[in-house]
Design a protein around this nucleic acid. Sequence first.
DNA 1: CCTACCGATCGGTAGG
DNA 2: CCTACCGATCGGTAGG
Lengths: 240, 240
Amino acid sequence: MLKISGFANLPPMTRTRKPAAPAAPAPQTPPPAEPARRPRGRPRKTALEIDDGNRRRALMDCAAELFLTQGYAATSVRDIAAAVGMHSGSPFYFFKSKSDLLHAVMHEGMLQAELSQQQAMQALAPDTPIAERLRTLIRHHFEVLLGPRSGFIPVMLYEWRSLTAVQRNDVSGIKDRYEAVWAPVLEQLHAQGALQADPGVARLYIFGALHWAVQWFSPRKGMTLDQLSDQAMALFIRKD
Amino acid sequence: MLKISGFANLPPMTRTRKPAAPAAPAPQTPPPAEPARRPRGRPRKTALEIDDGNRRRALMDCAAELFLTQGYAATSVRDIAAAVGMHSGSPFYFFKSKSDLLHAVMHEGMLQAELSQQQAMQALAPDTPIAERLRTLIRHHFEVLLGPRSGFIPVMLYEWRSLTAVQRNDVSGIKDRYEAVWAPVLEQLHAQGALQADPGVARLYIFGALHWAVQWFSPRKGMTLDQLSDQAMALFIRKD
DNA sequence: CCTACCGATCGGTAGG
DNA sequence: CCTACCGATCGGTAGG
């Protein structure tokens, strides 16, 4: 289930037109059933020469940025193709449909977010206070939403309705696991009186508060993600 | 500036096909320059017979519902026309463009929200405690977002990017006035220690938390808007 | 408001 | 991946 690709090692949101040098083939996503035999004679730039993994990734990065800026329905496949330097029909070589591309963005984004959240929590010492655990979750969530590699999750938040029911169901599974990590933390904070509201409702409110930062946060406006996290903690958690 | 139409008296979000009896002419919005002279002979259902104000409203109500469900770009003018029982070209008799219709929804929604917020606050006794003032603002905001007449404001929240720059600027003015009411309340709560976070950032977080309820709140799931407001207060405001 | 229509754009495909 | 293409849909308009 947790088939994490090398996503974390690749810089998303980079708009590249015809990359200068085709990078090393990505080991993760298997190319869509392309035969392995080599062409005879002088190598030409054919489907066999193309680094399918990287082109897929480039499409997803550009798609995410455009979906976020203009919305899924208002973005044409031609827009995306142009952004990565392809011709209008070429994205369909990598993705069965526009809808599949949207789904791939959300699916990969959630897998990556789940993985990095796990890593952030496991890096904490076993005796870390609960409030500090929540701060870590919040800080990590801002990284996912607003950090240098962001884009996929904001698209998920604001284009949820553009998924089909089947796709929603698929992404929901990962999203549920991601959110489930927060529940025990909030429950313990509630038990010790630091969180006044019901933990279940609080989780929904807190996610809303954090998610909405996508709409207004600008890194140039002075605040860092750390300060953002501190303010969130101050708002939600009682400090005695 | 505050040319409030009779909006509050009309039930939005009602999907009507060919209303049985043409209601009394709405006094508010002046019809788009339709001559006042009567046709001779037997009255026919022509442009002169049509209640332009009500048809405009019906278009806005249906448009808001569809924009919210499917998104602005994914909703065709034909969809909207069909929902109110018109033919495909007819909405352009009432609105210059699809974009104008979206703008009208947001503009009217914000005017109405600003008015009802003013009324809710003015109904409070002068010596009402500050925490109770915030609760009133929150409760009213939930009414606007989730109440029986909701729809226009959620569309504004989630289709902001679909507006042109000029339209955004126009709606921003009303939105700023609506939000400005919250600032002194939060500042006073901060001054007396009931709000720990910076009031400016807190306002952004709180709006995010409340706005997001549009995504998950379902009136059948048990909670009332009052309970929702109480939980929000418990989350944000320190009770000693 | 309807009728009849147009030009533009869009998702997607066949075949290499 | 490109070339060349198609059928469908869409926003909008003229004229009544």
